[in-house]
Amino acid sequence: MGIGVSIFFLTIGAILKFAIEPDVLGSSVHIDVIGVIFMIVGAVGLLLSFFLISRRGTVVETELPHRENHPPTV
């Protein structure tokens, strides 16, 4: 999940939590709880995206020891 998708989930979650009445779909569906879940998913995705971006820049190059070409011994 990228940064844009994470921000999208955070935005949709905030709209569902704070801007819509909790009983708009009836008493069996809790829109505010769904909004909180979306915000949690967006926050976790955002943290993972930042973590993976910070790791993407670190490349470790190791040089293998030089081996001379000797014929195999029988």
Score class of each variant (00 low, 15 high):
residue 15 I to K: 09
residue 19 A to I: 09
residue 17 K to G: 07
residue 6 S to G: 11
residue 58 T to D: 11
residue 69 N to T: 14
residue 7 I to D: 00
residue 46 L to P: 03
residue 45 G to H: 04
residue 22 P to F: 02
residue 15 I to P: 09
residue 30 H to I: 05
residue 21 E to G: 00
residue 23 D to A: 08
residue 10 L to P: 03
residue 21 E to S: 10
residue 16 L to R: 05
residue 12 I to Q: 10
residue 24 V to Q: 05
residue 68 E to M: 13
residue 61 E to G: 07
residue 14 A to C: 10
residue 1 M to K: 02
residue 51 F to T: 09
residue 31 I to M: 09
residue 30 H to L: 06
residue 20 I to K: 01
residue 65 P to C: 03
residue 8 F to T: 07
residue 32 D to K: 04
residue 63 E to G: 06
residue 57 G to W: 02
residue 18 F to L: 12
residue 71 P to H: 14
residue 51 F to D: 08
residue 27 S to L: 05
residue 59 V to L: 14
residue 10 L to S: 02
residue 60 V to R: 13
residue 22 P to V: 03
residue 43 A to S: 11
residue 67 R to Q: 14
residue 22 P to Y: 03
residue 49 S to P: 00
residue 27 S to G: 06
residue 72 P to I: 04
residue 62 T to S: 12
residue 5 V to L: 08
residue 57 G to S: 08
residue 56 R to A: 15
residue 59 V to R: 15
residue 23 D to R: 06
residue 6 S to V: 02
residue 21 E to A: 10
residue 28 S to G: 00
residue 54 S to C: 03
residue 22 P to Q: 03
residue 74 V to F: 11
residue 10 L to M: 07
residue 2 G to C: 04
residue 45 G to Q: 02
residue 69 N to V: 15
residue 69 N to H: 15
residue 17 K to E: 15
